[in-house]
C-alpha cells in the first residue's frame, strides 16, 4: 500500500485491516436498518397476524389466553389491578407433558387463526345454546302433554 492510499483510509484504519473494516461497516449498516424496520413493524404486524383489526387488542389477548391455558373460559383482565397477583397464578388447565424438560401442547397460531378460533367457539356456543333451548321446549311440551293424563 503506498502513501497516497494510506491517506485515503479512514482515521484509525490501517491498510492491513482496511478491507475488514469496510465489510464490518457494511454489516453494521445493514444491522442498523434491519433492526429499525423490525422494531417499528413488530407490533403492528404481530397484531395483524393475531387478528387485529377484526379482533380488538383485548380480544386478541383473550384468545391467546384461551390457547395458552387450553381453557375457553379464560379472559384477559383489562386493565389489570396494579399490585394484583400474577394473572395465571394457580391455573390448572394448561396442557403439558411434565418432566425435566416440559413440553407444551398448545395449538400453533397461524395467520389470523385466532379469528377462526373465536368464530368456531362462538358457533359451538350458539349450537349448544340452540340445543339446550330445543331440549327445554321438548321437555316443556312433554310435561304439558303428560299433565292432562294425571
Amino acid at each position: 500500500m503506498n502513501a497516497s492510499n494510506e491517506k485515503d483510509l479512514p482515521l484509525g484504519t490501517t491498510a492491513h485491516y482496511a478491507n475488514m473494516h469496510k465489510w464490518l461497516q457494511r454489516g453494521l449498516f445493514v444491522c442498523l436498518v434491519c433492526l429499525v424496520f423490525e422494531a417499528a413493524l413488530s407490533f403492528p404486524l404481530i397484531a395483524m397476524w393475531m387478528g387485529w383489526p377484526t379482533l380488538t387488542l383485548t380480544e386478541v389477548c383473550h384468545e391467546m389466553e384461551k390457547v395458552r391455558f387450553a381453557d375457553d373460559s379464560r379472559e384477559c383482565i383489562v386493565p389489570y389491578p396494579l399490585f394484583g397477583p400474577a394473572e395465571a397464578k394457580g391455573q390448572k388447565t394448561a396442557q403439558d407433558t411434565w418432566g425435566i424438560q416440559p413440553r407444551p401442547h398448545y395449538k400453533r397460531i397461524g395467520y389470523r387463526d385466532l379469528v377462526k378460533f373465536r368464530d368456531e367457539r362462538l358457533a359451538r356456543e350458539a349450537a349448544g345454546a340452540r340445543l339446550r333451548a330445543e331440549r327445554d321446549v321438548a321437555l316443556k311440551a312433554g310435561l304439558s302433554a303428560a299433565q292432562p293424563q294425571q
Partner: peptide, 24 residues
C-alpha cells in the same frame, strides 16, 4: 395490554418462552 399482545404474540410466533405459562 400492549405487553400481553406484543410479547406473548411474539412468543407464540418466535419463542415459546414468552408464551408458555405466561404471567404465572
Amino acid at each position: 395490554l400492549v405487553n400481553r399482545v406484543l410479547t406473548t404474540g411474539w412468543g407464540a410466533m418466535f419463542d415459546g418462552g414468552y408464551f408458555w405459562h405466561y404471567n404465572e
